[in-house]
Amino acid sequence: MTTATTTVVGAPEPAERGDAPRPLARSGDPADRIFRGSARGAGATVLLIMTLVGVFLGGRALQALTDAGPDFLTTSAWEPDSHHFGIATVLTGTVLIGAVAIVFAVPLAAGTALYITEYAPRRLKQTLISLVDLMAAVPSVVYGLWGLFLFQPSVVGLSRWLTTYFGWFPLFAVDGDSPRDPLSPNTFYTSSTFIAGMVVALMVTPIACSVMREAFAQAPPGEREGAFALGATQWGVIRSVVLPFGRGGIIGGTMLGLGRALGETIAVYLIISPVFEVQWHLLQNGANSVSALIALRYGSASEFGMSALMAAGLALFLMTLVVNFIASSVVARSRSGAGAEA
């Protein structure tokens, strides 16, 4: 028994009918060429500016880095005129302040973004979006003054409570204080890493919220309606559709906020009480950061001291680049909607 086959004239050969996408020819339209050139030029300009910033910092920091050597990363003191300086203290403080900020900012930003996209009445959405975006436009010095004079006195009680019940954990311990003693002064808990991180968290939240909100709003309507049709609750839709689709936005917003938190200067400078020893106790008075160090010592620095400050700035610049590269890699592997079915 023979099987009849039908041949379609002009049909591609079996080897040509793979899953490989058909190559697209570039358009010869002048508008497309202008747009393509403009986009490439903008990207090249950004890369050029970043390279020039790195070269400038590296050139100005070379003298201090040559003098300090590897000890630059492990020395806590900052006495450049005595040739005894390093960034161990300020680098640790920068990371801790950024970590505290992210711990508070991410849940707040994600919850706000979910409320705006999923729960807020239509007539309120635009108002809420405008208010959140307006928070990003408030100058950092305003946040710093608010944190110093209004927020800090209110948070001291929380810091004392954390020390009282969780002081066995090293990060929440406070040296030299007895938290259960009612006569113990509050100065043990002011100007701490914890307070500075919470203030920075409010500055980071609008940026992270905007990124997350855009990702949540683009969740596929078909999958939303399908989940509702199967009897899912609002939270079920959020958990099974919105959050998986917006994973890339959550990661991207978090890393973008972390980059902002690592480089925050004025608000941190106004709140902290600078110390030059590695301070692991988040709730204890005394903290420091790279940006606050530069703001504190820039006006009185000698020529060699300025080179040392440039070296500290170079370290912060490189750390921020590493964070952004890691964020790009993670987002590329978990893009919003990458796991969603068509």
Rank of each mutant, 00 (worst) to 15 (best):
T3W: 06
T3N: 11
V9Q: 15
P14R: 06
P14E: 03
G18E: 03
G18S: 08
G18T: 12
A20N: 02
R22N: 07
P23F: 12
D29E: 06
P30D: 03
I34T: 03
G37T: 10
S38D: 00
A39Y: 00
R40G: 07
R40Q: 04
G41Q: 01
A42L: 15
A44E: 01
T45A: 15
V46Y: 05
L52W: 04
L52G: 08
G54F: 09
G54Q: 03
F56S: 07
A61G: 02
L62I: 06
A64L: 10
L65K: 01
T66L: 12
D67Y: 03
G69R: 07
P70N: 05
F72L: 14
F72H: 09
L73S: 09
L73V: 12
T75A: 12
P80G: 07
S82N: 13
H84W: 02
I87C: 10
A88G: 11
T92P: 00
V100I: 15
A101V: 08
V103F: 08
P107M: 11
I116A: 03
I116P: 09
A120I: 06
A120W: 09
R123M: 04
K125P: 02
Q126A: 09
L128K: 08
L134Q: 00
A137T: 15
V138R: 09
S140A: 13
Y143P: 04
G144I: 11
G144M: 04
L145G: 04
G147M: 05
L148M: 11
F149Y: 15
Q152L: 06
V155C: 07
R160P: 05
W161N: 04
T164W: 02
T164C: 05
Y165T: 13
G167Y: 11
L171A: 15
A173Q: 10
D177S: 15
D177G: 06
R180L: 14
P185G: 10
N186I: 13
N186V: 14
F188R: 12
F188M: 09
F188E: 01
Y189I: 14
T190C: 02
S192T: 10
F194G: 08
A196N: 00
M198N: 13
L202P: 00
M203V: 08
M203N: 02
P206K: 08
A208H: 09
C209V: 05
E214Q: 12
A215S: 15
A217T: 05
A217V: 05
Q218L: 14
A219Y: 07
P221L: 01
P221E: 04
E225Q: 14
A227K: 04
A227M: 09
A227L: 12
L230V: 09
G231D: 03
T233P: 07
Q234N: 06
W235T: 06
V241H: 11
L243I: 15
P244C: 12
G248Q: 02
I251D: 02
T254L: 15
A261R: 06
L262G: 04
I271M: 05
P274M: 04
H281G: 00
A287C: 00
S289K: 03
V290C: 01
Y298K: 00
S300G: 01
S300E: 11
A301I: 05
E303N: 05
G305L: 04
A312Q: 04
L316S: 08
F317P: 02
V322I: 14
F325H: 01
S328I: 01
A332T: 02
R335K: 13
R335I: 03
A338Q: 13
G339H: 11
G339N: 04
A342F: 07
A342V: 14
